[in-house]
Amino acid sequence: MATKAARIGEEVWKSRVDKINAEVVTLTYGTIVAQLCRDLTVPNTINKTDYNAVNKELDRMGYNMGLRLIEDFLAKTGTGQCSNFRETAEMISKVGFKVFINITPNVSNWSKDSDSFHLVFEENPLADFVELPDDGRAQDELWYSNILCGVIRGAMEMVQMQIEARFVSDVLRGDDTTEMRVTLIRIIEDEMPPDDE
């Protein structure tokens, strides 16, 4: 399974993806985060950034991207339904991340009931050359790459999976690794509209 996903990811990345310079992406994303940090301040302060609000906004932006991105993902990769959540994890890592940003985060730390795993990012193009603001708070409060959580959440929601995604560590904060925890909340069943005869 893992090798099949890796093969699809590699193949699609090579032949069917329009590429863009990575540094353009890094710079643009950094600029957006910096702007959010300036815009979203704690009420009644001028320049005290509300990092929690920044995290939420990044997640929301990603969510809106994910809702649309899944369409492109399915069209490009031609993949069908995954038979279990472990397969889904492989798809996210080896096809999704590969096709859109050319990385394959490692899947690890499965929970006993296989409904939760870690994505371990050995590289992260969004965070190249990045340093967090030196205000004594960003290191503890800002999840710089939080947009990725939203993207996964939005994309999964469109294929009937409600998940929760959040970063649990980030090298930018001085942690040893950058890891995201992804947890399956529930499979969204098709619901009939009420009173639909």
């Binding site: 540094e23 353009v24 710079l27 643009t28």
Partner: peptide, 12 residues
């Protein structure tokens, strides 16, 4: 936003 990106790109 573009201005900041342009500055960075030119430098790079």
């Amino acid at each position: 936003l573009g201005y900041r990106v342009g500055q960075g790109l030119a430098e790079r």
